[in-house]
Write a protein that binds this DNA or RNA. Structure first.
Lengths: 257, 257
DNA sequence: GACTGTACCGTACATTGTACGGCTCAGGTA
DNA sequence: TACCTGAGCCGTACAATGTACGGTACAGTC
């Protein structure tokens, strides 16, 4: 690894890449879209860390350096992967708003869809998104997801905050779930097997200190979920709580009006 | 990089490392604690990715491979760093529970403290925590943070879910903040400067498509925060909303009893 | 004073992203 | 047809990584 990626050295180039169509092939049939597609497939099964330019090139039966004709570097490639992964999130502009249950149903729908994407493409968690989130698909996504919150009496900033809260929660729990799966796969041990393995050593080492509440609660949680965490439950519980909280805000706003 | 880290190859060894005192120096004064301390200092300023065994060894004026006498590898080292970073979180067992404002005040206190740690040590976000969260400091932390939720009528699983929800939110927003800072530092551009730079190219490229709600809200947010995101605001807004939601749950439970 | 085990570390290797410079070929011009 | 030009392609090279391996040096015990 030579130089640290200093964001995108040329923002305009990145934008053109993001918003371009990328369908004209070179003389060996190489396309930006093909590169991005191959990279996504590889990352889906191996993770971003394990994804290398050599692997992408091999899969496309092309020399490694040929990729650099179409894509400035790995950083920009992940940016493109990111935007493409969010390509098919919503069928049309009003799909969330059309869900039953008003804004609440819409936000639930949005949360589930985001969860699905993050589960299908766990490498998304590793993409630095701060200054990239301006591809066409991301922008469209933001617009669509804000719509169900429009006209409820919230200010623009509150609309953004509410959406951000929901999405942050989904991301956090999905990330935990992805990490759990990855760890299980890497180690070849289920959470239960792993726990059985370290349990004796743990009790030995922990003798002396004791943690009354943590012990009791930890045991209950373990018995209930057969694991330290249950991402699906965390998603549901958190989403419900957050929506309850948002409901209070929205009601207070419509009472004022 | 040779072999992918398959979790800790020897869990018992890791546990002994985690729970041991690590204060007996070798013949050149090398200690596990010293290694972990040096690694944390380096990671604080450069990030986990940039942290290398060679750098740690250099800082301690020791050959690179000497570190491997005390620590099995980089993975285990980050595990130790993780636990140590949470060492001084709470002065004593009841500090959160002692805060004014009941369980709500306690959870706010817990959130702020976690936020502080994550802000001081942004590399924590990159540590895989799933099967490591069993060091002495982490265990103590879990115990202390559960206490304010005990005796409110919640089930054990609900106590855990509530705490997890708050901590996931803090982590998510802190992560976004860390990424923002890092990007600004790496690129040398403030969000505002960066925006001014790409703005023309963006409007060019976006002409044709238009996003009514996203455009309006995005502009409002940008004007309000001088940035795409404001992590501090996201923390406060989200925490307030979440606690409002939890209040409903807790009230419903105490009504039943 | 000799022995033994632990601490220490120099070298080597596989793997990464990508800079650099050369080769190849499609398409246009004369 | 002959040639030229520029873009697409890619082989080699380099710096950096984590760590396996095997050797060296020293502290403590008999």
């Amino acid at each position: 690894m030579a130089g640290r990626k200093a964001a995108a050295p040329d923002p305009a180039r990145s934008l053109a890449l993001l918003w371009g169509s990328h369908t004209k092939p070179g003389r060996s049939g190489l396309t930006v879209r093909a590169i991005v597609g191959a990279a996504i497939e590889l990352a889906d099964s191996a993770g971003l860390e394990a994804l290398s330019m050599r692997m992408v090139a091999d899969r496309l039966k092309v020399g490694t350096m040929s990729l650099y004709t179409h894509v400035p570097g790995k950083g920009e490639l992940t940016d493109l992967m990111f935007d493409q992964a969010y390509g098919d999130l919503y069928a049309d502009e009003d799909e969330p708003a059309r869900q039953p249950g008003g804004w609440r149903g819409a936000l639930e729908f949005i949360a589930r869809r985001n969860w699905d994407v993050l589960t299908a493409h766990p490498w998304i968690h590793e993409v630095p998104t701060m200054r990239t989130a301006l591809g066409p698909n991301i922008t469209r996504k933001y617009d669509i997801e804000l719509r169900p919150l429009d006209g409820l009496g919230l200010t623009d900033v509150e609309m953004d905050s509410a959406l951000t809260l929901v999405l942050t929660h989904v991301q956090g729990t999905a990330r935990a779930g992805a990490e759990q799966l990855r760890t299980q796969r890497d180690s070849g041990l289920s959470d239960e097997e792993w726990w059985r393995q370290i349990s004796p050593a743990l009790t030995t080492v922990m003798s002396g200190s004791h943690f009354p509440v943590a012990g009791r609660v930890g045991t209950s949680v373990g018995e209930h979920f057969q694991s330290v965490i249950d991402p699906a439950h965390a998603l549901t519980f958190g989403l419900g709580t957050i929506l309850d909280g948002l409901a209070q805000l929205i009601e207070s706003r419509s009472a004022v009006q």
